[in-house]
Structure formats: structure tokens, C-alpha cells
Simulated scan of single mutants.
Amino acid sequence: MEEIARCTGVTRTFRGAIAVDSVDLTLDPGEIVALLGPNGAGKSTLLDMLLGLRDPTAGTVRVFGMPPTARRARARVGAMLQDTTGPVGLTVAETVRLTQHLYPVNTPMAELLALVELAAKADRRVGELSGGERGRLSLALALAGAPELLVLDEPTAAMDVAGRRRLLRAIRELAGQNRAIVLATHDLREAQAVADRVVVLHHGRKIADAPTRDIVRRVDVSTVRFTTGASMDWIASVPGVTQVSRLHDDRFELLATDVEGLLRTLFTAGHHLTELTVADADLESAFVALTREDAA
């Protein structure tokens, strides 16, 4: 099956400062890749090079085996960027129809507007839309050409909970049609729910690239919450507790590498626990640990 995209040793500098540093990245059909990293990590710059909006200072980018600026490559790519907007004087339907004409293959209008919940706004001018509605229109425009590579930058930021869930299901369906999807997001729970693979950037370098479940497993720590009369200093001294904070009154939140040992120590010391919850490591704790490890 044809490889969707490949970045090889991609570097980008701005006035001598390195924004992306020798990054390798491959995208295959049918996979969803979450691109994570703190502000300034190089995520947007990498996406811009993947889309042909910026040229790499060094290294190569290929999309469907071609430079990303090639007309045949662009015809197979859709992108939703945070700064995208439509002509304010056109209606929603006119804007979508105009975008569809730019591609040899189209996603049906009714399907697009239903997906982004703008069917009732089809005749509304773009300039009259709310900020959230404009965001959903940007997603419709990204999907207008039935892309095989879809680049999404914070796609659910303007959606409510129900709309977000519907969109995430739609993303999974699109990936099931052998499309490759790159999802840049700050919502780490969202990435964990939908992504097959996670790529983490830090200071322009790729510090992790693995299946989502493997990234989470790299952090051998659990989040423990309970209410107890024990002091915060005493809890912090228990072996295996790496971090402790007071939520309110006698309720605490801990990061612990040995939950069973922690509970055994508390019970042996005669401390009574209520409202106990234990959560395994999630993508957020993995991300924090990875960037902290890289900084060290």
C-alpha cells in the first residue's frame, strides 16, 4: 500500500533559531497520528512543511512520493488550520461549493454540512457566523476534496461535548477508509481516545514516536486520590510516592509507583481512607514525564 507521507531529517531555522531539528516522520494509510508538544515545540512548523507552506532548511518532505507543493499531491490533501476562514460575503453553501471545485473528487455537500452541524446555516453568510461556527466551517472545507491525507489543527476546539464525540467517531471512520490523519491537539485525553500513534516534539526534536498504548506504558506511575487524616508530610515520606498535593481539607492527590505498597503502609499505620480512587497512567502524565526527562 502506498506510503502517504515521509519527512526525512527535516530541519527548519528562523533567523538562526532552530524550530524543527532533524525530524523523521512517516504517515501510512489508515492511521491516526497525534502530534503533541508544548507551545513552541515545532508542531505548527512541521505541519506547514508537510503541507508545502514552508520549505525545510534541510531534509526532504514527500507526500504521495512527490514534493508537497506538487499539484497532484495537493489535490489529495485537506487541512484545517487555526487561522483558516472563508470569504465573509459568501454563504456557507457557496463557500463549500467553491472549495469543492478546486478538487477532482468531492465529499457530498449534505454529508459535509451534517458532519460539522452547519446544515441549518447553509444560507448564512460566513461573516455572520460565530467563532465556533467558523471553526466548523473550516473543517468542512478541509474535507471538501475527500482527502487521503487530512491535517487537523485543534479541530474540536469550538465544539460542544456531543459534537466532539461525533467528530472523533467520524475521524475513526475516515481512517478506516485508508486515509492518514494527523491530529495536532492540546487535548491529551482526546489524543489518547482517537490516536493510533503519538509523536512528541520538544524544543523542535522528536523525543517519542510509538503506539499510544506504548507511550502510556512508559510511565510506571498511577494517580491516587483519597481523604485521610494523615499529614501531607507523612504521606510524602511513604516509599513510592513521587508527588503529593492537597486538593482541599483532608483530600489528597498522589503520584505513586507502588499503589499496593502505599495502601498497605497507610492501613498498617492505622490511617482511615475514604473516597479512594486509583487511575493508571494516562497520556497526559506520560507527556509530562517525557518532556521532563528530555529537559533533564
Results as ranks from 00 to 15, higher is better:
residue 5 A to L: 14
residue 7 C to Y: 12
residue 18 I to K: 02
residue 28 D to I: 02
residue 29 P to R: 03
residue 30 G to E: 10
residue 37 G to E: 07
residue 38 P to R: 14
residue 38 P to M: 03
residue 44 S to A: 01
residue 45 T to A: 09
residue 45 T to G: 10
residue 47 L to Q: 13
residue 50 L to A: 09
residue 51 L to D: 11
residue 61 V to K: 09
residue 62 R to D: 05
residue 66 M to D: 08
residue 71 R to N: 04
residue 76 R to N: 04
residue 78 G to N: 04
residue 87 P to C: 00
residue 92 V to F: 04
residue 98 L to V: 01
residue 99 T to V: 03
residue 100 Q to Y: 05
residue 104 P to N: 02
residue 104 P to G: 07
residue 109 M to R: 03
residue 109 M to C: 01
residue 111 E to Y: 01
residue 125 R to H: 06
residue 128 E to Q: 14
residue 131 G to V: 04
residue 132 G to I: 00
residue 139 L to P: 08
residue 139 L to A: 10
residue 139 L to V: 14
residue 140 A to I: 08
residue 143 L to S: 03
residue 146 A to H: 06
residue 154 E to V: 01
residue 165 R to S: 09
residue 169 R to N: 12
residue 169 R to G: 05
residue 171 I to Y: 00
residue 174 L to P: 06
residue 188 L to I: 14
residue 198 V to Y: 09
residue 200 V to R: 14
residue 203 H to M: 06
residue 203 H to D: 10
residue 209 D to S: 14
residue 218 R to Y: 01
residue 218 R to P: 05
residue 220 D to T: 11
residue 223 T to M: 03
residue 227 T to W: 09
residue 230 A to F: 00
residue 233 D to L: 07
residue 234 W to T: 11
residue 239 P to D: 11
residue 239 P to I: 02
residue 240 G to M: 08
residue 242 T to Q: 13
residue 253 E to S: 08
residue 255 L to T: 05
residue 257 T to P: 06
residue 271 H to R: 09
residue 276 L to G: 09
residue 276 L to V: 15
residue 282 D to M: 03
residue 283 L to W: 15
residue 289 A to W: 12
residue 295 A to S: 07
